[in-house]
């Protein structure tokens, strides 16, 4: 068997934990559950994360960085804001389909158990990479004249609240069609709501 690096081990824990937390819930999932899933002893687990809370925070950072990197690549393209919206929606829905645990964790754990994310994860601290890229997306759009200038949170809420809601409906198996089918109409709705009037 090939030697597994510490980093690889760590990402193994992260991906296992994400799945467990989003399936079973944060409080029900225990450290032994996670250790078992990655095939390591509980003692060894503590070499990577000293507590469940710390792991929880690390997971948010991980997701935020993942989303941030994806949006950054979109932001750095020469596309119009309309195309960027399509790309962000596509990226988000693809992620919800392919790695549902990431979005699930974000919606079900991070947003629902705020008491866990107090110290060290206040406000935007742990989601900064993601929020920063959304800020850049919005401000570039206004600067280029494509998007209507308004309060950041009004625009952010419209965009991400909408996507989060759709993913929630998808997760609850309420949506009649796969997420894929909604990309175009939702992108257009978001663009129409944000564009310069």
């Amino acid at each position: 068997m090939a030697r597994v690096s510490k980093e690889e081990r760590k990402s193994g824990i992260i991906s296992a934990a994400l799945k467990l937390f989003s399936q079973k819930g944060f409080y029900v999932t225990t450290i032994p559950d996670i250790a078992e899933k990655v095939g390591m002893s509980v003692g060894n687990f503590y070499n990577y994360f000293t507590s469940k809370d710390l792991l929880a925070k690390e997971l948010v950072l991980y997701i935020s960085q993942y989303l941030g990197d994806k949006i950054r690549a979109i932001n750095e393209s020469d596309d119009s804001s309309e195309i960027k919206i399509q790309k962000i929606v596509t990226m988000y829905f693809d992620m919800a389909t392919e790695k549902p645990e990431m979005i699930e964790y974000f919606l079900r754990v991070y947003l629902s158990n705020r008491e866990v994310f107090g110290e060290g994860c206040e406000g935007m601290t742990c989601v900064s990479p993601f929020i920063t890229e959304m800020m850049i997306f919005f401000s570039d759009g206004v600067e280029s004249g494509e998007l209507h200038n308004q309060d950041f949170f009004s625009a952010f809420g419209l965009f991400m609240g909408y996507l989060g809601g759709m993913v929630f409906l998808f997760g609850e198996k309420i949506l009649p069609d796969p997420l894929e089918e909604y990309k175009e109409s939702i992108s257009l709705n978001i663009y129409n709501a944000l564009k310069t009037r």
Binding site: R72, G123, M124, T125, S128, P129, I131, T132, E133, M135, I136, F138, S139, D140, G141, V142, E143, L147, N149, Q150, D151, F152, F153, A155
Partner: peptide
Amino acid sequence: NMSIPQDTPLGVPKRSYLTLTG
């Protein structure tokens, strides 16, 4: 622009500025 200052401190990239600010 969407509550984000159009001009950031001289020489500071918008991304770095927003990260720190957030």
